[in-house]
Amino acid sequence: MNTPIRKPAFHGTGGELFLIHLVNALLIVITLGIYWFWAKTKVRAYLYGQTEFDGDRFAYHGTGGELLRGWLKAVGLVFAVLVAGVLIQLLLGEIVGALFIYAALGFVVAPMAIVGARRYRLSRTSWRGVRFSFRASWKEFIPIFVLGVLLTVVTLGLYYPFFHVQVRRFLVDHSYFGNRPFSFDGDGRDIFGRHLLALLLFVPTLGFYWFWYTAFRNRYYWSHTSFGGARFDSTVTGGALLGLFLTNALLLLVTLGIAFPWVQVRTIRFHADRLVLAGPAELEEVRQEALAATATGEGLADLMDVDLVGADFFGL
């Protein structure tokens, strides 16, 4: 076999992360919350710095100041939308104003948040000294997002797996490491059947089948993600995912949440241990090509509570 296999490894420990969280919590209290942005940055720098891929660690270059500015801009934007909504309510009536607010937040600001947060995070991540980047604007994402949401609603959720795959494709295809793109060749039809099965089995299995569906989708997504001539592969199984979930839940339960850093570390290690990149990735040929990005999208994502943990670099 001549195929090169590259693997990630996570070296972080719960104890170290706990100490970081502890100091952060204290500083957040003392600074009346302002430190939150720096705290978030410190946790991220630690997690990225402890993640190794093919013998080298990732580095995180974001700063708390950027996050604070991004958050302020995001607050300004959401505030502007609300003010405009109230004005429209006064001029054109309650229903038009409310519709405006829902449409603006759901169909413009939410896609902005998803794309913006990804742009910011990738642009602040490096490996072997070369930055990642995301090269698409939120404007290109809006039609995909709006159409996907509407079709999902109209088809009573049947369209959802197709929508999910499309979002995935948009996010992966525009992600770059240096001057080279990642690419995604998944198809919604491949997961549609399993999605239906998961819906049907949800009640009879008390929801537990969802772990197997999630693991399947995870494996499917990774095996359809490639970089250069190399392809990712994940060996996550439903049983293992369920085991992780149960042990994490128990840990949090018996420690009244204090075990959170350990849970974080276990979860990252779980996914890292099951991921490989196989094939000629031609990493030697990758050239630096950094891209500017602001943290406004990140701030929006925080405000709107868009969960992007899964879309971090393990979710590429």
């Binding site: 013998g55 072997r128 000294g129 040929e285 990758v286 630096q288």
Partner: peptide, 10 residues
């Protein structure tokens, strides 16, 4: 290991 900041070469 040395990285020149221009390529991902190790």
């Amino acid at each position: 290991w040395y990285y020149d900041g221009q390529t991902a070469r190790r």
